[in-house]
Design a protein around this nucleic acid. Sequence first.
RNA 1: GGGCGUGUGGCCUAGUGGAUAGGGCGAGGGGUUCCUAACCCCUCGACCGCGGGUUCGAAUCCCGCCACGCCCGCCA
Length: 581
Amino acid sequence: MFLSLRTEVEDALHGALGTLDLPTDDLGIEEPPEDVDAVLASSVAYRLAGEVGAPPPKVAADVAAEIDPDDYDYLGDVTTQGPYVNFLPSERYFAGTLEAGQDEEFGRLEDTGDSVVVEHTSANPTGPVHVGRARNPIIGDAIARILDFAGNDVETNYYVNDAGRQIAVFTWAYETFDEADLPEPERDSPEYDLVRYYRKGNAYLENADAEDVEEAEAEIQAILQGLEEGDDDVYDRVSEVVDTVLDGMVGTLGRLPAEFDEFVKETRFMRDGSTDDLVDRLQDLDEAVYEEDAWQLDFADIEKNLVFLREDDTSLYTTRDLAHHEWKFDTFDRAVTVLGEDHKLQADQLEAALDLLGNDTSQLRQVFYSWVNLPEGGMSTRKGTGVDLDDLLDEAIARAREEVESRLDSRLRDDDLDEDDVERIAEQVGVGAVRYDIVSKQPTKGITFEWERALDFEAQSAPYVQYVHARACGILDEAGEDATSNLDADLLDAPAERDLLRTIARFPAVVEEAADELQPHLVATYTREFAETFNTFYRECPVLTADDEHRREARLALVAAARNTVGNALGILGVAAPESM
RNA sequence: GGGCGUGUGGCCUAGUGGAUAGGGCGAGGGGUUCCUAACCCCUCGACCGCGGGUUCGAAUCCCGCCACGCCCGCCA
């Protein structure tokens, strides 16, 4: 409804300004502050005051006078408040919202017909997923969900770096060291098992005698060489390590939950010849130069050259990533990548190179986030510093369980929760809190990890919003099946009811904006506002004990719309929506 | 040194040109014979990093400076 009303307001303003013979290039449409009784407003009068030669309030009044609300469905009234033109909703706006909200899929936008690949996480398969990188799957998964809800055909990809030096070191270490010399694994899972070899290998390369290191380096180089030449035997050896570790990491990511439709391996673009073809095309570019024994791209706008081929004709990571992205462009309509801020320069070079190669880079959007650091510094898989995501999730669930149990005694509601419920709620709340904490902030803001903060269940956190969903479900559950037959929005005339309807009405617009801007935190902000509005309604408007039957039914319909809205909003964020808690 | 990003009450955060800067944590006070108190209400607390500029209007745009983070490998 909000989107329709916005279109109507645009039409109305456009028409009014046209009639008054004023410019229509900037309509100044905005959302008014909370205490203003309008859904949309325009500050256009400020801008036109000089042109008209009249004070802004006069201009606003003239503009408002040109608009007849009767010409529109959802526009109920046009008023002015000083220099602002305010647009109030009609009864049909509320009725339409109440009706649209009954759909369990409320908020889902029309199909765009676009296929979009969302690449996220793509962490090197070298060991357990740690919290430093946890922002990537959480933001990436939320973006994928938003794009899906906004009507796109979404596929999630994890790009697997299985061709680099770190992987060669890992393979060498795995084949060289003896399990007996390693510490006990921290967990009974393959990535915790294998990372011990990786750490041992790296320590060896740092500390062993020069002669021994040289010998090890030769073996590592042989592995890299084998990969470059497409040696099947080497590929199989590397794959064993990569696939095993990746399998474990995927298990952890699945707890968030973050899932992937496809794992795209870097070696794929070496083995199918596309990297070689790409190198040929790069060499033909005017910007390609051979300097300091390597082929480089000399960009006009980027100071740093991109080396794409070594003296010995071997390719580099970014060269393969170029082939990877051309594959994306061939396969999908649009591509979104979620990357750590440390990849910014490389991402700019990638985009510039793709552009030089004749690709339409407007198909590509790259979203950056900054690392989660510890108070004492960054986290590293190689060094083994940092907090494992598994540990964070376990701790979150354990603390959530304590909360659930401590609340059992003081519960007003006598709906005996059994052990399965406690387990379920602890999981939903614990994991949800971690996810919500990350997804609700702007990705570019730095985060320093602190246990107390990450595991705070109070107020602006997942459980606050989840609780609203549970409350709504509780009411509907109590009321039974056929409760939502009466959609008479006229009966919902209390301020709290109107506010709730207005908030519900905005949801599709929030989805649209979050999808356009690839900003999941907009949805999180919305859920918070939604929860506040719902809680006011909950306090002031009894549903099951409403004073007459019609009002009760209308309120039940409103609660159903609220449940669908908040449930879908949480769904977009990848946070569970509990039916009871 | 250069590039990119961030800077909002003691702490965390929303708001990126328009109506008294919105929340939360914290501190203090209040609310449950009534659909879940993981809730609600009240009070306390902000020269929006600093200095200039543009504009009728700036947390938001421009310039300079400061602080912090990331990057500036023929690593990935």
